[in-house]
Simulated scan of single mutants.
Amino acid sequence: MAVSLSKGQQISLTKTAGPSLTRVRMGLGWDGIMKRGLFGFGGGRVEVDLDANALMFDADGQLVEAVWFRELQNANGSVRHSGDNRTGAGDGDDETISVDLTRLPQHVTTLIFSVNNYSGPNFSEVENAYCRLVNLDGDKEIARYDLGAQGSHSALIMASLRRQGNDWVMTAIGQTSRGRTFHDNLTDIRPYV
């Protein structure tokens, strides 16, 4: 059974998913903005382009690699992005980032997952947004974080994965920020590295 995370909550992924945890996927899903037409007729969905990011930091807190819509994998291929979904159309995860924890470079001690609204509207207008962590060995959801933080922000620092010996600890962050890409959020991300 998946753990429903709240802001600031930590879980040990090894304790939650078992010692066989080697590959995880962070999934991001959302729906476009529902617009109502004149007198409630003729409305429809406006497409929203949310972007999932995985930022890799070393023990000194330096950003060493980033996987996002312009860089779909890291140098050794241990972190891979599914590609840019510019609409949010369809069911399930709209963008995913898969991480092979066994192949992740040893100098990477923290991964930060974040979301940016590249198309511009703030998150208060985006419907059904969530992120989730899935154990790819068995395709089992181990944690879910509903991105229900409403407000005028256009970015969200979702969660971190931090190496602790042979274990990985996930922390739900849920910190709002602003900007179209993760570059705009680095100042807000630093406290969580």
Rank of each mutant, 00 (worst) to 15 (best):
A2N: 14
A2V: 14
S4W: 14
L5A: 12
G8C: 14
G8R: 12
G8E: 13
Q9Y: 05
Q10I: 11
L13S: 00
A17M: 04
A17D: 06
G18M: 03
P19E: 02
S20C: 06
S20M: 08
L21D: 01
T22P: 03
R23P: 09
R23K: 15
R23Q: 15
R25E: 10
M26S: 06
G27P: 11
G29R: 08
W30T: 06
W30G: 08
D31S: 13
D31N: 15
G32P: 06
I33E: 01
M34T: 14
R36C: 11
G37L: 11
G40V: 06
F41T: 13
G42I: 08
V48H: 04
D51K: 05
D51F: 07
A52N: 12
N53L: 07
N53I: 02
N53Q: 11
N53S: 14
A54I: 08
L55Q: 01
L55S: 01
M56S: 10
M56G: 05
M56I: 08
M56N: 04
D58M: 04
D58Y: 03
A59N: 13
A59K: 14
G61P: 11
E71F: 06
L72C: 02
L72G: 08
N74E: 13
A75W: 13
A75M: 14
G77T: 00
V79R: 07
R80Q: 15
G83F: 12
D84E: 01
G88P: 07
A89K: 14
D91R: 11
G92Y: 04
D94A: 12
E95K: 00
E95G: 03
T96A: 02
I97G: 01
S98N: 00
S98D: 13
D100Y: 03
L101R: 05
T102C: 12
R103A: 15
R103F: 10
P105C: 11
Q106M: 15
H107T: 15
H107V: 10
H107K: 14
V108A: 02
T109H: 10
T109L: 05
T110K: 13
S114P: 03
V115F: 04
V115P: 05
V115D: 03
N116A: 01
N116C: 06
P121F: 04
N122L: 03
E127G: 10
E127N: 10
N128S: 10
A129V: 12
Y130E: 07
Y130I: 06
C131Q: 08
V134F: 05
N135I: 02
N135Q: 07
N135Y: 04
L136R: 14
L136M: 15
D139K: 10
K140D: 11
E141M: 09
E141A: 10
I142H: 01
A143Y: 03
Y145K: 07
D146C: 09
L147M: 13
G151F: 06
S152Q: 15
S152L: 13
L156Y: 10
L156A: 10
I157V: 09
M158T: 13
A159R: 00
R162Q: 14
Q164R: 09
G165Y: 05
N166C: 09
N166L: 11
D167A: 07
V169N: 00
M170W: 06
M170Q: 00
M170I: 03
M170V: 00
T171R: 03
A172M: 03
T176I: 12
R178S: 13
T181E: 00
D184E: 01
L186N: 05
T187L: 12
R190E: 11
R190T: 11
V193G: 15
